[in-house]
Design a protein around this nucleic acid. Structure first.
Lengths: 232, 232
DNA sequence: CAGAAAACTTAACCATTTTTAACACGTGAA
DNA sequence: TTCACGTGTTAAAAATGGTTAAGTTTTCTG
């Protein structure tokens, strides 16, 4: 048996939520249930967790599923999204795919069908998604986001909370763009001017740390964001 | 822009087949129509063609869609498959995912929905194929778009974001026309007058950089766009 | 709980990138 | 040929980012 997959389920209907959780757990998945979009976003954004798949209900208070999905897409352009919708309305479906849905299922659905879709998504992402190791290699530097620790040639560097959150986002989007506003919202909660300057200070700090490996570079994309380049 | 995607459509219903072909062609895809599974298989297996996505009807003479799909899976573990089925039967759906379907759509469906699903699949797969840090030779100058770096005889020139985005477009359309409005929308997001002037400034910058190789020239096509000419 | 240390923010100053302005030149239709 | 419009080019202005250090807040520790 392989290491089991983790699912983040964002569902406000308590009955359906609990039902799905116990079904999916019985099928061997690790499941976290979030009662609204905001909680889901925070769970996703937490270093302690890793999710292989997100199941998002479209209709939710606080933050609806699509908003949540597109916000998460800005942080992680690969994590599979599966939307649950009460109505089979066409616009909803299209909007979902626009956000970057990997699949879409309308209520009511059977448990078997949900499971089939989950397995289909996981099967096709498995090929590309490397197993989530504790230790991530960024160039020749070893990074443990859970422990917020960086293994440099000179020794072990313990990262501060903000350093770690920012680096984690950069690493997650390695060689791809990390949107400036999205990063600010994820790490600072708000993308105002001062937080932006604060982030720039942290970028400078991370650059100093990563200078150890000359093949690593945090590149700025003017007005848009940053890119952690790792030359291959 | 020349990077249009190619689709192989396996569909025995002549009316539906032709309809889909013309719709998809109108949307900018290259489409090959196969009237049965066997022809589709041979087309796929032909070195002359490259397909970014296969759309397979489930119910076909000679070789049904699922058989075809699983046969093709043996040859290519990654090529995206989208199944079309007349019935929304659950077993069919499950069987499709089992074969490794990337998506599944039941007749009748709207053209918009099919297009949305196609784009969703292609967006997904594009991400994985990207990210290759290739070196492109433009005349005797070496260009690494992912690193936004130009290797000139005099040394290495780091390009700014806009320089890089514009040069990438020009190189992608090497010796072909790059439409002015299209370039503006791609790089600046909007083709208003001031962005146009800004682009002209960047064209001047790139000309200066590329002056190194006298066989390279950015030619203006009055009122239409630019052409990166590389004499061989 | 006080003082110290660490983490984080704000400020300051400078550098780079991008936009706007200004003026010269080229092009094609009338 | 003329004239309006598009483009070439340079320079100034504006916006954004890089970096260091000085403040401020939070957390630790005795």
């Amino acid at each position: 048996m392989k290491e089991n997959k983790n699912i983040l389920l964002a569902e406000d209907d308590e009955n359906l939520g609990k039902l799905l959780v116990s079904y999916l757990q019985a099928k061997g998945f690790g499941v976290e249930l979030a009662r609204n979009g905001k909680i889901a976003y925070e769970l996703f954004n937490n270093t302690k967790h890793h999710f292989d798949l997100l199941i998002l209900d479209v209709m939710m208070p606080e933050m609806d599923g699509f908003t949540l999905g597109s916000e998460i897409r800005l942080l992680d352009r690969k994590v599979p999204l599966l939307f649950l919708s009460a109505k089979s309305m066409k616009e909803d479906k299209l909007k979902g795919f626009d956000v970057g849905a990997d699949d879409y299922i309308t209520k009511p659905f059977s448990m078997e069908e949900l499971l089939a879709r989950i397995n289909a998504i996981l099967k096709r992402t498995e090929l590309h998604q490397k197993n989530v190791q504790e230790k991530i290699h960024v160039g020749k530097i070893e990074y443990e986001p859970e422990l917020s620790v960086l293994h440099l040639g000179t020794g072990v560097k313990k990262l501060t909370t903000k350093e770690n959150m920012l680096l984690r986002l950069l690493v997650q989007n390695q060689n791809e763009l990390l949107d400036r506003q999205a990063a600010l919202r994820a790490v600072w909660g708000d993308d105002n001017y001062f937080n932006g300057r604060s982030m720039d200070v942290y970028i400078a700090k991370l650059r100093k740390l990563l200078k150890e490996d000359s093949n690593i570079e945090i590149m700025n994309v003017h007005g848009i964001g940053f890119k952690l380049l790792v030359k291959q």
